[in-house]
Computed example of a mutant assay.
Amino acid sequence: MRRDQLIGATENLANALESSKIHQVLLSAIRSSKDPISPNQLFSAYASFMTAYANFGPTEKYLMKLFKVERLIVPEFWEGLIKQDGSPSSMTVRRGITLVTEFLPSVARMLERPSDKSNLAFENPVDPSKTVDSEKIRFFVRDPGVPTLTVGHFSSILGAIEELHSAIETVEQTKHSDLVVASLDSGSDKEFDLLGVAAAVRKLSETLLEVWSRIQSARATKAKVNYGAACEGIAVLVKLNAAEKSNAIPKDQAESIRRTIISSITHLFENGVYTEAMEAQVNPLPSALPVDRRKLLTHQPSESAPLEAPDEGSASNEEI
């Protein structure tokens, strides 16, 4: 589980519980032995929560199980409230809801980073009194189970990103700029934020997303993915071809840039690298793709088996 997934899942679950007013309904159902709660109130709370639950991912469902509120999705639990059968599960669920809505969001806020909230800008090299707008791009590196990502792998990934970013700037005929490492994080997948000049970063994100859309189409038809073929005709290469034909970029340089773009994108995808924008797309998720690395580490046997946090990539959408 990644830090950003935990923060987002906490917000989603707490909002679903608060907006459905389940806590108030449960409290009324437990206390109102002489004046039973209206079935319509129970159904309204249940329907509201289940609407939100339909969009929950593995992390939200994991939190529900961890805080023992997973019975909220069981119809028999709500039937018991209508019948006022005095089931102790009602008290357990109510305590869990209190923890999720009143305490867990505060814990999640402690995990937020200053860089998530601040707007940073680059100094203008021509006029130091002015700034250049920046934009952040979040990358993830697929690393399921036992860590397999070596220093060499990570170095090559950063190099491929830098080469692709530089090639795009050349095609766009913009001044070359550096990418700054804004943050590093880990979890089920490794995560890092890079900060760069806004225009170039947007083009970098759009290029990767464009190729990913083609990969999705190939996987939907169960065809074997050819990353080089998926790059054919993408916007940045079309613009490069036009610049080559107009002699804005010499032929030899254009061919070198073309190879750099295709090889960099291929290297990133083959090493399980994906962006936040790619993850927002429909299935298959990039975090679910396999990564072929040599296994260097293994788990030592443990006497106890705690509740495992989900791996967003490999987890299914099955209910708890």
Rank of each mutant, 00 (worst) to 15 (best):
Ser263Asn: 09
Ile73Tyr: 02
Ala200His: 01
Gly86Ser: 03
Gly96Cys: 04
Ala108Thr: 09
Phe154Glu: 02
Ala315Lys: 09
Val126Gln: 09
Leu99Glu: 07
Ile320Trp: 07
Leu297Asp: 05
Leu237Ser: 11
Ile249Asp: 01
Ala52Tyr: 06
Leu63Asp: 00
Val25Ala: 10
Asn12Gln: 11
Thr275Met: 05
Ser118Trp: 00
Leu111Gly: 05
Phe43Val: 11
Leu42Cys: 14
Ser19Asn: 13
Ser20Met: 06
Ser19Thr: 12
Glu76Cys: 06
Asn40His: 15
His165Ala: 10
His299Leu: 11
Lys251Thr: 11
Asn15Ala: 11
Ser314Arg: 10
Ser155Asn: 09
Leu63Trp: 01
Thr148Leu: 14
Cys231Val: 14
Arg2Met: 06
Phe43Tyr: 12
Glu79Phe: 02
His176Pro: 05
Leu164Asp: 02
Asp311Val: 03
Ala248Val: 01
Ser183Gly: 12
Glu255Phe: 01
Gly233Pro: 14
Leu184Val: 15
Asp189Trp: 02
Ser106Leu: 13
Ile37Gln: 05
Asn317Lys: 03
Ala167Met: 02
Leu72Thr: 10
Trp78Pro: 04
Gly233Tyr: 05
Leu99Thr: 12
Lys130Ser: 15
Trp212Arg: 01
Asp252Arg: 05
Asp127Met: 07
Ser38Phe: 10
Lys251Trp: 00
Thr101Met: 10
